[in-house]
């Protein structure tokens, strides 16, 4: 689905992403994880074409991202950021249908799709006429996901979609989101710095540190075969007793 060929990115002379080549396969959920400022969002924004790499090329469905075709390529990606990135001047419904109605979807199809997505994300229909300012964080997040799914894109790019939610809401939304991704067979790339969330979603985890992919693979590999002491430290820092116990046991051997 995505192929990154020797891409690198600097801001104001400091390298934020060191040269790397990567692939995200169709139907696979990948999780980008790492400490704050390590370049996760930067990587995701490169995939969405919001920023251009200094060197290298991003391929989407075997086509390089190019200014001319970017609009159309983006319509095949759903992008969700913290708080949903909703437009405050439009109602939830306005946010969700903004592009669809521009692209000539009939009102009936739009209504059907909205109803379907609302049931999928379990958002009460009556909330759709509210403005983002009148919704709770979790509700906004669901609207953001509905907006991303409106055009039924094959890919979902999710940048800390559960960032500022309380644990219970977060738990529900995680369940729902994973169900959606799996049932709709989407390719998903999710950014988080929560190991638990990462392992819950991810077939494949990518741990970043200062612009570099330190380790890539399944959570178990991170615990049993850490590529560096940094990986172990990162996992321990999550304060997840069962993980710590396992790594500690490892260390004793």
């Amino acid at each position: 689905m995505f192929k990154l060929d020797k891409i690198s990115k600097s801001f104001d002379g400091t390298q934020v992403l060191k040269p790397c080549s990567l692939e995200f396969k169709t139907g696979e959920t990948s999780v980008l994880i790492g400490p704050s400022g390590c370049g996760k969002s930067t990587l995701l924004r490169l995939l969405a074409g919001l920023i251009q790499p200094d060197l290298g090329t991003v391929f989407f469905e075997n086509q390089p991202l190019s200014p001319a075709s970017l609009i159309f390529q983006r319509r095949r990606m759903g992008y969700v950021i913290q708080e949903g990135g909703l437009f405050p001047h439009l109602t939830a419904l306005g946010n969700i249908t903004l592009l669809a109605s521009r692209l000539g979807m009939t009102p009936i199809d739009v209504a059907k799709r909205v109803e379907y997505l609302a049931s999928l994300t379990r958002l009460p229909m009556e909330l759709l006429n509210r403005y983002p300012g009148q919704l709770s964080g979790g509700q906004r997040q669901r609207v953001g996901i509905m907006r991303a799914l409106m055009l039924d894109p094959p890919v979902l790019l999710l940048d800390e979609p559960m960032g500022a939610l309380d644990p219970l809401v977060r738990y529900d939304l995680q369940e729902d989101l994973r169900a959606i991704i799996r049932s709709l067979k989407k390719t998903a790339i999710l950014v988080t710095h929560d190991m638990g969330e990462a392992s819950f979603f991810g077939d494949r985890l990518l741990l970043l540190n200062v612009g570099e992919i330190v380790q890539e693979g399944h959570l178990d590999d991170f615990i049993t075969k850490p590529s560096s002491p940094y990986v172990t430290r990162f996992i321990n820092a999550q304060r997840m007793p069962h993980l710590i116990a396992r790594t500690a046991g490892e260390a004793c051997q």
Binding site: L50, I71, R74, M77, L99, R102, A148
Partner: peptide, 21 residues
């Protein structure tokens, strides 16, 4: 900036982005 990016990333043309968002 995140609002601008959201407008861009859902695939609005530059003119629509200005006009609608």
């Amino acid at each position: 900036p995140t609002t601008c990016e959201s407008a861009e990333v859902i695939g609005l043309s530059a003119w629509d982005k200005l006009r609608l968002v």
